[in-house]
Every structure is written in C-alpha cells, then in structure tokens.
Amino acid sequence: MSWVSTSPLQLIERETVVSRAPLCPEIQLHLVTHTCRLWRATDRDLEALELADPFWAFAWAGGQAIARYLLDHPEEVRGRKVFDFAAGGGIQGIAAALAGASCVAANDLDPIALHAASMNADLNGVHLDLAGGDLVGDPLAEFEVVLAGDAFYGSEAPAVLKWLCRLAKAGKRVLLADAGRGFIETEGLLGLAQFETPTDEDSDGTRLRPTWVYTPNP
C-alpha cells in the first residue's frame, strides 16, 4: 500500500465511500467500509498515513442509536439548540438537524472528525457548526440539548458521564447512547429506547449489539 498524505478533505474523499449506517438509511455518510483499503489497515498503516485512529470513519452503535431515536422522535430537538459531543462523523448531529433543530454544533477532539462531520452534513443538505477541543466540564450555556453517541470509552468515561448528569441537572435535555461497552454505570440512567444495532463486530458483519439511548434520571 502506498499512503500519500494530503489535506483532510482529500484524505476523506480518497479513503471512504458514501454509504449508509444500517440503523439510519436516511443519512448518507463518508464511511470506511469493507471495500476500502483502510478497512484492513493496521496500526502501521495508520502511522504511515500520519492518521490518528479514524473514529469518524465508522458509524458506531451509539451514534446510530441516537440518530435513529431522533429521527423517530423529532420533538426532542425540534427548534432547539443542540450540542453533539464526541461527534465523530456527526451522525447524531445530522439526525438532529434533519429532525428540525434550530442549530447543531459538532464537537470532537480530532480535527479530521470535524472535517468529516462537515462533509457528511453537506451530503445530507444540513449544516453543522464545528467546535474543536475538549469541552468536558463546560456548562454549554448556549445549548438546550446535548447528545453523546458512543462517547464512553476508557478511563475518562465516568468523568464524562458525571459532566453530562450535571448538565441534565442544570436543565438541559441530555441524550446518550451506549452499546454495553462496560465503561459506565448505567444504573442511574433512564432508558428511552433500545435498538439491536448491526455493527462490524464480526468479520462477517452480522453481530447485533443491543444499544440503549438513555437520559440521566431527574
């Protein structure tokens, strides 16, 4: 494989195909699928491409679940200001925009994710504001709804959940989704919907992951 580094835009165009996540066929996304060379890339290939783990290139179970939930329950976001935390490719933010949110900001640590989210928004004829950097702990004063799709990984997950619960206490509508990845306690959360989300867990792509959309208990 030869990897030539280019601009994020070119990289996303070159390494992905326009595709749809199984749970949300309404939404088009630039995704790495089994037809793309990155599908079988190793850590070494990513290094050669100077690419951080491209979380934006896949529609994770949690993002799919929130997006599905919002498309089915547009009243959750209609006319409201939405913040999409750990947006990745922005699937849940795009669903919010399609559901009639007055504005949506996509936030991710990875600058390439923001490029991808913006390109994905274009594919679906919606607009996302982009917010880089780590905003965990921020009061998010301008926003009314906060989304967190598949954002609970690793040791920082409990701190993220605490922050989201504080935001909920402060009166914001918080929707989060987890596919039972085991990094957060879901006991204090109210389940709003459950989906059997097809994921790429298996090499044959058939494993369904039970994925919950939650909101913090009042």
Partner: peptide, 16 residues
C-alpha cells in the same frame, strides 16, 4: 481464524 479489521483494532485499544 478471522482477520482483524480497522474498526475492531480501534475498539480493541479501548477494551479493558
């Protein structure tokens, strides 16, 4: 044995 794919390699880094 199955081959590993990039999304699974990425997820694996976060597993316990």
């Amino acid at each position: 044995p199955r081959f590993t794919t990039l999304p699974n390699i990425m997820k694996a880094k976060k597993k316990k």
